[in-house]
Design a protein around this nucleic acid. Structure first.
Lengths: 223, 223
DNA sequence: GCAGTAAACGAACGTTCGTGCTATTTTGCC
DNA sequence: GGCAAAATAGCACGAACGTTCGTTTACTGC
C-alpha cells in the first residue's frame, strides 16, 4: 500500500516537528504544508489530532529504540551494557536524532500536568524506559559487576536525571559541554559502585590521595 | 491604582495555569473566563500575548525567589547554605508551589527548541539560577567546606539535573518517592566532596567496610 | 460634585485550529 | 486495460485564537 509509505513519511516529519514545537504545537495544517499535502488528505490517515499525537509518540519511540536502546543490547550484559546504554543516550542527543533534543524529555514536561490518553501513553513509555534502566542495573548486579547494596530504582533515577539535565543545558543554554558533564558524572557515579569483577576497561585502583580514607568525587580531573 | 492589583491577580493565576498547560497553552480567553473578566479587559493590561507571557515568567521568577532562594540565604554561607538551597528546592516541589510542578522546568523544555524573546527570557532566568548554584558551590569551597578540586559548574549541573529528574518523576509518574531519591542523591553527592571543616551536622567518618579503600555510594542505607 | 483619567466591557475582526463532507485522482489487481 | 478500492484534494463548518475598536463604568483629584 502506498498509504503506509505516506503515513511513515508524515510521522517522520511529525516527530521532528513535535520535538521542537511540542505535541500540542504540532498542527495538522502546518504539517500538511510542510509535506506539500492537503490538510484533509493528511488528516484522513489519522482521523483525529489525538490519534496523530499517539501515532507520533509511537514513531518517536521506535526511533528511540532503534537509535539508543537496541544498539546497546549488543554489548555484553552487566556493567558494560549499562554503560553502553548511558553513552548511547548521550550520543543520541549529540547526534541530534531529534532536532529539538530528546523527544521524550520534551513530551514528558509538556504533558506532565495534563490528563488523557496522550499523557498516559507518554507516562507508560517513560515507565518502560526507567524500567529498562533499572533492569540494566539489576543485571549488572546479578553479574556481580555492581555493589550488591545498589538500589536499582535509585541509580536509574539518578542516571535519567542526568540525561534530562544534559538535554536541558544542551538545548536551552546551547552548552554542548553539558553532554561531557553528564558523561563524566555518569562515569564517576557508576565507577563508585563498580566491583572488581566488572568487565570492560579495568576499574582504576583508588589513587593515593592526601586523605586516602575518603573517596574523592571532585569534578576536576586529577592534576 | 486598582489596575496594579488586578494585574497582580491576573499574573498569579497565569503562573498557575502556565505551570500546568505551558506558556503557549496559556490562553487569554480561558484566563479571562477563569478570572471572570472580559478578554479585552485582561488583554489591555499587556497589549499582546507575548507581553503576557513575559510578565508571567517574571511573576513566576519572583515566586521562585521568594519561596526557594531567599529563605536559603538566611542559612550560614558555605556548605550549610548550599544544602539549604537544595532542600529548599525539593521542598518547593513537595509543597506544590506551582500546581504543575516546577514552572521553570516546564518552561525550559517547552521553549528550548524555539526562538524569540520568550525563549531568551527563560534562558536568562535559567542562566541566573545555574549561576546562583555555582556561586553557592564556590562559596562553600571558599569557606573550605568542599574539596578544592570540585568544579562548580560540574556540581551545579548535577544538582540541577537531580532537581529536574525529581520534578519529572514526581509530576508525570506520580512518584513522590523521587523527591526522597533526589534528596538522598544530593546528600550523598555533597557528602562525597565535603571536608571536615564544613559546618552543620558533622560529616560521618568513613565507616569500616569490607573494602574500606573504596568509598561506597550504594543507594541503600547501610544495614 | 464634577471633570478627567483609568479600567473594564462587549462586539467584531481576520486567522487558524480540528473536523466533517464530497469529488477526483492514483494505485494495485484480474 | 478496465475497475474497484484506496488515497488525496477541495471546500466548508464551527469554535477558538490573538487583537482592535468604540463605549461604558469606576475611580481620583480638584
Amino acid at each position: 500500500m502506498k498509504g503506509d509509505r505516506t503515513r511513515q513519511s508524515i510521522l517522520y516529519r511529525a516527530v521532528d516537528l513535535a520535538s521542537t514545537d511540542g505535541l500540542e504545537g504540532l498542527t495538522i495544517g502546518r504539517l500538511a504544508d510542510d509535506l506539500k499535502m492537503s490538510k484533509s488528505g493528511l488528516f484522513a490517515h489519522f482521523g483525529s489530532k489525538e490519534e496523530l499525537q499517539l501515532a507520533t509518540i509511537k514513531a518517536a519511540k521506535q526511533r528511540f529504540i532503534d537509535e539508543v536502546f537496541r544498539p546497546a543490547l549488543n554489548v555484553e550484559r552487566g556493567y558494560p551494557r549499562l554503560m553502553a546504554i548511558c553513552k548511547s543516550w548521550i550520543d543520541y542527543v549529540r547526534r541530534g536524532v531529534f532536532p529539538g533534543g530528546c523527544f521524550f524529555a520534551a513530551a514528558s514536561f509538556e504533558f506532565d500536568g495534563r490528563s488523557g490518553p496522550v499523557r498516559d501513553v507518554i507516562g507508560t513509555a517513560m515507565d518502560e524506559w526507567i524500567d529498562a534502566l533499572e533492569k540494566a542495573v539489576q543485571m549488572a548486579k546479578d553479574e556481580g559487576h555492581l555493589d550488591s547494596r545498589v538500589d536499582p530504582a535509585q541509580l536509574a533515577f539518578e542516571l535519567n536525571s542526568l540525561f534530562f539535565g544534559a538535554n536541558f543545558a544542551c538545548q536551552l543554554r546551547n552548552d554542548p559541554r553539558s553532554l561531557d558533564r553528564a558523561e563524566k558524572a555518569i562515569e564517576t557515579r557508576l565507577e563508585s559502585v563498580r566491583t572488581r569483577r566488572a568487565g570492560g576497561s579495568p576499574a582504576v585502583p583508588p589513587p593515593a590521595r592526601r586523605r586516602p580514607s575518603r573517596r574523592s568525587r571532585a569534578g576536576e580531573p586529577p592534576a
